[in-house]
Structure formats: structure tokens, C-alpha cells
Simulated scan of single mutants.
Amino acid sequence: MGEYRHTGGHHVHAKKAFEGHINYDPKKGFSISNELMAKIGVQHKVVTIAQQKLFRELGKSGKPNTMKEHTRIAVEVLIKGGATKEKARSLVATSLNDLRNKGVRVPTDIPWFKTK
């Protein structure tokens, strides 16, 4: 776990959601390595597919694009990928604290959803 530039792997909160934010650097975004994902039984491909689906659903729903929604999605996709509920919540809490500490409090976009 740590900054993407050191771990590679998966950004727990989708990096695409914060592109263009003045305080966000995807290389410094909180991530979990492919090795850690394998160790806790999380399949990266399943997580990514679930992210795409849930973000498209968020976009189509008309709900506000909030950090609360992004955090909910981050937990759900880790669980869908194979993490326990407790592990998913713990990883997402760490990611959320990291974003807050860096001054990132709102998403800039809904990933994988483009308006017409």
C-alpha cells in the first residue's frame, strides 16, 4: 500500500475521478499493489470492470458527483473483486484520508461516463 509511483497496482479511489484537480497527482495517489491484491484475494480485472459499471450507473442516475458516492463505489468494487467487507472498508478509509490530507475533497469527474 502507498503511493502509486511505489506500488503500481490499483488506485483505491479511481484516479480518473480526480484528473485536473489542482491538488491531485495520480503518481502520488493511494494505491494497492498487484501483489497485495493477490494476497487478499482481489482480482484487479474484476475490480476495474465493476468500477466502470458502477460509475456509468452513477452518471445515468443523476445523483450528485460526490466523494460519498465515489467512496461507496470504491468499497463495493473491492468487495466484488474478492476483498472482505472489513478489508475493503479499511483500504477505502485509508485512501479517503490520504485524499483529504492532500486537499482533495471533491471529485472532478465521473469516470467512464460522458454526457451527450
Rank of each mutant, 00 (worst) to 15 (best):
Y4A: 12
S95D: 12
I110P: 09
D98Q: 03
S90Q: 15
K116R: 14
N65K: 12
A50K: 14
I49P: 01
T84Q: 04
E86P: 01
E35L: 13
K60T: 04
P26A: 05
L96S: 09
K102P: 04
H13Y: 13
Q51L: 10
E76M: 14
I110G: 02
V46I: 10
G82P: 01
I32F: 08
V42G: 02
V75K: 14
G59C: 00
Y4W: 14
K87A: 12
T108Y: 05
R105N: 15
K63F: 08
K116G: 11
A74W: 08
L54D: 05
P111M: 03
N97P: 00
K87H: 05
Q51S: 06
R5F: 08
K16V: 01
G82Q: 04
V104Y: 02
D25C: 07
R100F: 12
Q52P: 00
E19R: 05
G8F: 00
N101W: 06
S61N: 06
E69L: 05
V75C: 05
P64W: 01
L58H: 06
G8S: 06
T7H: 09
E86L: 06
W112S: 14
F30D: 00
V106N: 11
L58R: 02
V47Y: 06
Y24V: 01
T7K: 09
G62W: 04
P111K: 00
M67E: 01
P64G: 04
P26N: 04
K28N: 13
T7I: 13
D109R: 08
H10S: 08
E19Y: 07
R5E: 14
Y24S: 02
V77I: 14
I110W: 06
V42R: 06
L36F: 11
Y24K: 00
H13C: 01
I110D: 05
S33M: 05
G9C: 03
F30G: 01
L96Q: 13
K85N: 03
I22Q: 13
P64C: 01
H6L: 09
D25E: 09
T48V: 14
E3H: 04
R72G: 00
T108K: 10
L78D: 06
E76A: 14
M67Y: 03
M1W: 02
V46A: 13
I73Q: 09
S90K: 14
P64T: 08
L91Q: 07
H44T: 07
T94E: 15
L58E: 00
G62S: 10
T115L: 09
R89H: 12
F55M: 08
P64K: 03
E3I: 11
I79D: 06
I79L: 07
H11D: 03
G103E: 05
L99Y: 07
K60F: 11
R89C: 12
V106S: 13
T48Y: 10
D109T: 05
Q52A: 11
A38W: 07
F113L: 08
A88V: 01
L36H: 11
G41T: 03
K80E: 15
L36D: 10
K27W: 10
E69A: 10
K45E: 13
G2N: 11
I22W: 10
V106F: 10
G2F: 07
R5K: 15
K114L: 10
R89P: 00
A74T: 12
S33H: 04
I79G: 05
E3G: 00
G62N: 11
N23H: 06
